[in-house]
Amino acid sequence: MQWSHFDIDNKTITIESTRDIIGSRSPKTKSSYRTIFIDDLLVRKYIEIDRGDS
């Protein structure tokens, strides 16, 4: 996962890749591409880490 996958304004994370023992690559199926809603706690943690507060 990359920081660019986080959308803080819409409180979502977009899954666009997979990682395994081979490395990082595109998902095998279309259903593996998805957007997940995140809660306020995770948004606050993201902001803390992004600012270097953690």
Rank of each mutant, 00 (worst) to 15 (best):
P27G: 00
W3Y: 11
R25D: 05
I47E: 14
S26D: 01
L41M: 12
Y46G: 13
L42I: 09
T14E: 07
R51Q: 07
Q2W: 12
Y33G: 12
D50G: 12
T12I: 12
D20G: 00
G23S: 01
S54D: 02
F37L: 11
I8Y: 13
M1R: 10
Y33F: 15
G23Q: 02
S24Q: 03
Y33K: 15
T29R: 00
R44P: 06
I15M: 13
S24R: 03
T29L: 01
I36E: 10
H5N: 08
T35C: 13
I47Q: 05
D20F: 01
H5Y: 03
I21P: 01
F6I: 09
D40G: 04
S17K: 12
T35E: 15
T14M: 10
V43Y: 12
R34C: 11
I49Q: 13
I15H: 14
D39W: 00
G23R: 01
K11E: 09
R19A: 15
D9L: 10
T18F: 04
I49Y: 13
W3C: 10
N10G: 08
T12W: 01
E16G: 03
Y46D: 13
V43Q: 08
K11M: 09
T35P: 06
K28Y: 08
H5P: 04
I49F: 10
T29H: 00
D53Q: 02
R25F: 04
D40L: 05
S4E: 11
D7Q: 02
T12K: 02
N10I: 00
W3H: 10
T18S: 14
E48C: 12
K30C: 06
I8Q: 15
K11S: 09
K30N: 14
L42N: 13
R34M: 13
S24G: 00
D9E: 15
T14H: 07
S32D: 10
D50M: 13
M1C: 14
K45A: 13
S31M: 12
E48T: 08
N10V: 07
D39E: 05
I8H: 11
D9V: 09
I49A: 11
I47T: 09
I8M: 13
I22Y: 06
K45R: 15
S31Y: 07
D39N: 13
D20P: 00
R34S: 11
